[in-house]
Design a protein around this nucleic acid. Structure first.
Lengths: 225, 225
DNA sequence: CGTTAGGTTGACTGAAGTCAATCGGTGTGG
DNA sequence: CCACACCGATTGACTTCAGTCAACCTAACG
């Protein structure tokens, strides 16, 4: 069980919409809990995609290395969120623990079987899948059109929203992680944080970020206005 | 019925994977056919998202205008593909006809009702939805990391694949459309086409493109290698 | 201690955006 | 029928934002 220091990356699943699924599934499906240390691999590319995970504590990243060695971070997953859902026999991305992590694993075949029989579970999964494609829409908007400031502002607001944290939040991921998520270089991420700090929009202390002017951040976040 | 001149943007739905859904749905659900002229709106943002469309002929684009007036094209849809599926009461994007278009409209409530009862339809919809999120993954990779050449090469290969066209294909969308889809300016798209033409990779004649060196294009397409 | 990994900052470079001009096709109204 | 306007495509000149390369600093860790 993670210590209090990693808050707000530990929450009861019930507190996020996606996780309303969890109690239902826990009752219906077998699930296995596992823990991972920072940097440890949850699954690798080409692994059999035979299960789905729910984050119980900590943060997970999914990523992919391109032919030329460049890294793309597809997503960060915080407690209550589901990852590892794929429509193929083998995985396209790998998943790694960013911080100390606890995940619940659900068998895919079992889950799909339940979804076909249990309308409530099916509706929930539907809703979650469609919702995640909606989030992806904002990401595309951002990557296609946003500059470094807009991308960073959106990232901070997104993390704040998904972790339901207040002014202060912990970013367990490195600048490299954020850069590969936003399509920037780590130096640019660093410079952008500095710029926001100088403007008095945020205050940083290591990987802890305080949002001093949420409205300024929201004004910068032009994805889906 | 579109004339032969719009080939290959008219095909029987059965020829694409996504459209294996169609015969089943046609038998089960009511559907309405409609036609649209180039530039005509199929639906607008904030419209009620109460139906789903299948392209029968022509090309459709979904798009969104940002606060600052910038336009993002989220997707192009060719015959056999489904668009307009959203997990909300109102639409986040609008949809417009790129060329002369024929679409089939399915009522959303009816469709979802069928999906909950008919396992085959549910499985197909699941598969389609997960598959489209997979395609989105390649797009994110491209937008986050690709340069103009890589983006354009990927775009050409993607269109060729989805329309199952041979060496020669028709691009009914404008340079502006392609630019807003790839996160580039229309001038850069134009310059990139010129660069590919000069290298002898493609030949263009208006909006008709011939791929002379498919292998060169594939080598440039670094998304998901 | 020394080593390493991550973060920050600076100097320089380069790819793509912006602004502008040109050209061809299309449609429209006089 | 022609003059005009307009849109899209192309190309050139210039600018700018972010990437690259490099240095330095700190913290963590063996």
């Amino acid at each position: 069980m993670p210590a209090a220091s990693v808050l707000p990356f530990w929450r009861e699943p019930e507190r996020t919409p996606a996780a309303r699924l969890a109690p239902r599934l826990a009752a219906l499906a077998d699930r296995t809990l596992s823990t991972f240390c920072p940097g440890e691999r949850v699954y690798a590319e080409e692994d059999r995609a035979d299960c789905v995970y729910e984050v119980m504590g900590g943060v997970v990243r999914t990523l992919h290395f391109g032919r030329d060695g460049r890294r793309t971070v597809y997503g960060f997953f915080v407690p209550g969120e589901i990852f590892g859902f794929e429509n193929r026999a083998v995985r396209r991305c790998s998943a790694e623990a960013v911080s100390d992590v606890i995940v619940a694993r659900y068998g895919r075949a079992r889950l799909e079987g339940i979804a076909l029989v249990d309308r409530a579970v099916a509706t929930q999964l539907w809703s979650w899948l469609a919702g995640s494609s909606e989030q992806v829409t904002a990401r595309i908007d951002l990557l296609a059109r946003g500059n470094a400031l807009e991308k960073t502002a959106h990232f901070l607001l997104e993390i704040a929203r998904r972790t339901a944290s207040g002014d202060r939040m912990n970013l367990p991921m490195s600048r490299y992680d954020i850069a590969d998520y936003l399509g920037l270089s780590s130096e640019t991420v660093s410079r952008t944080f500095t710029a926001l700090r100088r403007r008095g929009v945020i205050a940083t202390e290591g990987r802890s970020v305080s949002v001093l002017k949420p409205s300024a951040l929201r004004q910068l976040d032009t994805a889906f206005d």
